[in-house]
Design a protein around this nucleic acid. Structure first.
Lengths: 256, 256
DNA sequence: ATGCTGATATTTGTCAAACCTTTTACATCC
DNA sequence: GGATGTAAAAGGTTTGACAAATATCAGCAT
């Protein structure tokens, strides 16, 4: 028989084991909260050492697919997928992407305008009174001129988060988290000054007014006006930066 | 002095090390493509053993924050964040969320309608000729009645992916990927039959016509009509399912 | 001089066996 | 019966070694 050159496995053992278990979870062969065999057991079954098994399990734990508990009733268990945990990890990774200049500011602003318009429409329709109170709370905080710029920006993020929550739409909430937690700060960082604070909070207030009245069209119109205004300021800031950097080489991140 | 009950460290060593290195990367203390100290070196510096260091590194590698290479010039390197890799991991996690019934079908459909409307508007404005060709290619494939249902659904996913790409907006592309790769299949699975195929491809064709003409409003209107129609079919399917399950207990997933 | 070959050093990958820590369950004692 | 001790089970960590990959460089033949 001619020699078979295929099927030599070059991926690491830990990686293979992690993939096997992950697929078992994704296929539903392992149910939520089900306990995996003990690490010793897994090592024996796969014919590899326990440290290697542990590396594989750590990978899955890092992806929040399993969690470990010690003790006689302990072990590694399949975790129920958690939107919040996923949102956190998306935010983290997305922040990193933004940090290295993967996206252009113009793209980010455009994405914000479009997606947040949606949120306003849906929020106007589906909001509860608690959602409204939550939004108003942030506006009140933002009107307080004694809060620091840092706190103001944090409140800005919370405001937009509350806006998404008010849509009552889980999938949308998940999608928007990356935007809110990583795109908003990068926008704010670029444009922020004293004067902008008043403009920002006024824009927020108009939006909430429309949402309170359950007027989807007006809410959409208001957030659009707010963000278009912000867009203009961003472009000004970018122009200034370009003007300043004409003499020296541009070290800023570029759109990939 | 009264006994201080505060904070004894309960997190594992591997976890702590992973967090330290992760923060160093996120803070920019470790640049992209920079090499970490060797595993032996890290173990010595942190005062822990190498397998523990490796568990920590595996966690970071699982999050695509670092990659390892062997050999004299090898080591663990900070990776450039990759939108594609992030999109894949979001898709995987999102699929799992959908699988355990975290979201209701109604929510998913609503999110699809709103977000894909955006995509159509932007695609109509920003599309290139290649984008258009890509979209048309999938439509031609979908018109072929000899392709299997599985292939048809795969083409459906590719169509919507091409739609997002045509917007030319990176951040939006990232956000939409979760929708496309995990929300579309779950919708299709529910409603699919022979008759739907014709309706679907006709809807797609109308959308592409409008995008070809760079008519944003018509594109938005067409995708909305397409998805509203789909929504109706979904509701019918759900009603049927409810009718069938009135005798037995409902085992379906609920909105969390 | 040039180009291949092979030794070497470095670094990650894997293994084995043990010990430590946490947690539960059960037995024990007052 | 309730507090307390004890054993067992499981993950957490350590140690030390060897295996595999791979860049570098000396050496050799052309």
């Amino acid at each position: 028989m001619a020699l078979q050159y295929n099927e030599i496995v070059r991926t690491g053992l830990a990686r293979q084991v992690a993939d096997l278990i992950r697929n078992a979870i994704l296929d539903g062969q392992l149910q939520v909260d089900e306990r995996l065999p003990s690490e010793d057991e897994l090592a024996k079954r796969f014919g590899i050492s326990r440290p290697t098994v542990r590396e594989a399990l750590k990978v899955l734990a890092a992806q929040s697919l399993i969690r470990a508990r010690r003790g006689p009733t302990g072990g590694n268990f399949v975790t129920r997928p958690d939107p919040e945990a996923l949102a956190r990890s998306i935010t983290e990774a997305s922040t990193l992407l933004v940090g290295v200049g993967t996206f252009g500011i113009d793209e980010i602003v455009a994405a914000r305008i479009e997606t947040e318009t949606i949120c306003c429409r849906l929020a106007a329709t589906n909001r509860t009174d608690e959602d409204l109170a939550r939004l108003q709370e942030e506006i009140d905080l933002q009107r307080d001129e004694s809060v620091s710029d840092t706190d103001f920006c944090a409140s800005d993020v919370r405001f937009h988060r509350a806006l998404v929550t008010a849509t009552g739409n889980g999938p949308l909430w998940l999608m928007m988290h990356a935007v809110i937690e990583s795109f908003i700060p990068v926008t704010n960082m670029l444009i922020f000054d004293e004067q902008e604070r008043r403009r920002t909070v006024d824009g927020h207030a108009s939006v909430v007014d429309a949402i309170a009245a359950r007027d989807a069209d007006r809410a959409a119109q208001q957030i659009r006006r707010h963000l278009d205004g912000m867009c203009a300021v961003v472009n000004q800031a970018l122009d200034r930066r370009v003007a300043h950097s004409t003499t020296k080489t541009d070290t800023g991140g570029e759109t990939g």
